[in-house]
Every structure is written in C-alpha cells, then in structure tokens.
C-alpha cells in the first residue's frame, strides 16, 4: 500500500446555530486504504462527508484533494476530479430503471452526449452491465428502482458512484437499512467491487463487526471532533472508545 495522501482536511469547522458539527477537524486519507468512520449519531460524520464532497462550505479550514485546494468547489466539480459519494439514504432516479440509473451515470462520466443517441445505446452500456454484475444486481436491471428493497437500493447507489470511476469514494452508512443477516454479504459485494475498481474508500459505519472486517483504519468522531484514529484492533479495543462510542451503539 502506498502512503500517498489523497485527501486532506485541515482545521475544518462548521456550526449550525449553536450546534458545532465540525470543530478543528484534521485528517489525512491515504490512497488505497479503507477508512471507517465511527461515532454516535449527531457526531458530525455526515457533515464531514458533506464538506469533503462540496455540499457544505466550512466556516473555517480547507480541504485538499490530490494536493489542490478544493474547499470552494461544487460537488459536480469534485466528482469530475475523482471524488464520488454514496448516500446514507440512497439517492436514485426514481422514475428510471436500475440499468437506466447506471447508464445516466455512465453517460455523465464520459461526457459524450449525442442528443439523438438513445440512452440504451451509449457506448458505456457494456461497462455499466459489468458494474451491475459486480454488485450482483444484473437480475434486477430492468426493475424500477422505486420497487427495490433498501439493501438493493444501497448497492445501486454505490454502483452509480463507482460508474463515475472515482479515485476516492465516500459511503455514508452503506449497510444501514440492510437486514443484519445480509450486512456482511452486502459489504462483501461492495468490498470486492472496490478492490476491482481500485478505489480508496471512506465509509461511515455503526456495526463494529463490519468495521473490524472491512476497514484498514478507523477514525472515531464525537461532537464534531476526531477523537482517535488508528488500526481497527487498537481503536476498537480502546477503553474510551468502548465507553463513549461503542457503548452507545449496543
């Protein structure tokens, strides 16, 4: 594994009224790693993702991607530089089928849009079918996404993000809403797809079993701050983390 810094946050701060959702956040994300973010509800995990992907502008601090200051960029500009995102609540095109959702993403990524070539005949179609296969959703390609159970919607949401060929993928609670019996299966699928696409990932997760199995590193969030960061074994067994974070999860 390389140790190249892909994304770096420096001194991020953001408040919503009296709520401090980010307070002097400093963190580096290394290429090739899978970083898990854990922490209680309201700790500011989603806010961190929102800032890193351009959805929110921090009141203080900066975000660097590939060494360049990207703090003020819009999500679409960050996407085009290689930062993609999957959402806590899947964000899909509800009037399109699963395959069409991916075809739209594929077309968006390639930016070759003939206004008269049908969406279903774009050159990226094959790659999108392969992606659906990777996330084990080939059999539902023609289903409207609005009919799918949450677990499959999560997978489609992640597949859309992968269709953008990102260097860095943020996933907000990829297994929330997935039945606990299926969580490992879903994460196995995602992990395999990430490895195949060689994507660095940052994922927010509440299930410590999942964190232990899939993360190379863990960062602990609390009240808008990063409390700890380190290998899963160290962080998950740290008495403070067990008391303040994991305790609340159980």
């Amino acid at each position: 594994m390389t140790e190249r810094v892909l994304l770096e946050a420096k001194g991020l701060e953001i408040r919503f009224g009296g709520v401090v959702a980010a307070q002097d956040i400093n963190i580096q994300i290394h290429e090739g790693h899978n970083l898990a973010i854990i922490g209680p509800n309201g700790a500011g995990k989603t806010t961190f993702l929102n800032i890193c992907t351009g959805y929110l502008k921090p009141h203080k601090g900066k975000v660097f991607f590939d060494g360049k200051d990207v703090t003020r960029l819009q999500p679409r500009h960050l996407v085009r530089r290689g930062v993609a995102r999957a959402f806590q609540i899947p964000q899909l095109f509800t009037e399109h089928s699963v395959l069409e959702n991916l075809l739209i993403a594929g077309a968006a990524q390639s930016r070759r849009w003939s206004p008269f070539r049908p969406l279903h005949q774009i050159p990226e179609r094959k790659a999108m079918l392969h992606l659906l296969d990777m996330v084990k959703c080939s059999h539902i390609a023609d289903r409207p996404v609005s009919e799918l159970p949450e677990g499959q919607r999560k997978l489609v949401d992640i597949a859309i993000a992968l269709a953008l060929k990102p260097k860095l993928l943020f996933m907000d609670e990829p297994t929330s809403g997935v039945a606990s019996s299926e969580k490992f299966e879903v994460l196995d699928i995602i992990a395999e797809a990430l490895t195949e696409a060689k994507v660095t990932s940052v994922f927010v997760e509440h299930d410590m079993g999942i964190v232990d199995r899939f993360a190379d590193e863990v960062a602990v969030w609390n009240r808008g701050e990063v409390l700890f960061r380190g290998p899963p074994d160290d962080v998950l067994n740290h008495p403070d983390v067990i008391r303040d974070v994991i305790g609340e999860e159980v």
């Binding site: 679409r76 996407v79 899909l92 009037e95 399109h96 003939s114 206004p115 969406l119």
Partner: peptide, 26 residues
Amino acid sequence: RFLNSPIGNMMRTIKTNEVRLEYLGV
C-alpha cells in the same frame, strides 16, 4: 429522440433527484 437521449434523461432527473445529478458531475 431528445427525451430518450442521455441529456434528455438527465433533464428528466431534475424532477426526481437533482442532488444526485449534481453528484454525477453534471
């Protein structure tokens, strides 16, 4: 033809999920 093209479909997603469209880089 336009409505069925990639750009036409992207335009239709403004109705269902504009945030995601922006997160596709569009």
